[in-house]
């Protein structure tokens, strides 16, 4: 196989780092070469954040570039739209149906675009997940990111048991049960 290019995008604080680490460990577990690239520092403070994961026989650059992503995992709708052009034409976007207004919208300097999900669907294969709502119902609002990951798992070519094994060994011990449940809810 060639190199698989995954992007995880969202708003700083939504847990893109944890999600990418699960994916990175999974790729190693499967015997692949893997590289990840993350955002730390000021950009994390409620800003738009993007994490790249690449795995395959041999990986050179650690980033995914415009027009090269196989899977775009988005924890927020507007961020899915922002990075849509990174997807290959046959790539798939997994999007959490959740809206967080950027400060530019809060102050009235910009408008939150209408009909984002339709725009995504018209452009690329799109899977919509009600992850935040599901996570709140589960009583674990922070675990929405692993629900989204569960939905995306179908497009990344690893077995479910491998996913669960890696989640159990990557997340903090006391959150294993919640994250396991969250993954199952997304994967179903």
């Amino acid at each position: 196989m060639g190199v698989k290019n995954i992007m995880i995008v969202g708003v700083g604080g939504q847990g893109t780092l944890l999600t990418s680490r699960i994916l990175g460990n999974l790729a190693i577990h499967a015997g692949f070469d893997v590289k990840l690239s993350e955002v730390h520092g000021m950009a994390q403070r409620g800003g738009s954040v993007v994490t790249f994961v690449r795995y395959g026989e041999e990986v050179a650059e650690p980033i995914v570039e415009e027009g090269c992503a196989d899977v775009l995992i988005a924890f927020e709708k507007l961020e899915a739209l922002r990075y849509l052009h990174f997807l290959k034409e046959d790539g798939v976007v997994i999007v959490n149906d959740w809206r967080i207004d950027p400060i530019t919208v809060v102050t009235g300097a910009a408008q939150y675009p209408e009909g984002i999900l339709d725009t995504l669907k018209a452009a690329r294969k799109t899977v919509v997940v009600e992850a935040t709502r599901q996570a709140v119902e589960m009583g674990a609002p922070k675990a929405f990111n692993v629900i989204v990951l569960g939905a995306a798992a179908r497009y990344m070519g690893f077995g479910k048991e491998d996913w669960l094994h890696v989640i159990e060994t990557t997340v903090p011990p006391r959150t294993v049960e919640v994250n396991r449940k969250a993954f199952e809810a997304g994967y179903h």
């Binding site: 700083g12 403070r45 507007l78 961020e79 950027p102 400060i103 910009a110 675009p113």
Partner: peptide
């Protein structure tokens, strides 16, 4: 590939 138009910026806050 071009980024979509009219996507409001999301600066850190």
């Amino acid at each position: 590939p071009l980024p979509p138009a009219n996507v409001p910026a999301r600066p850190p806050i």
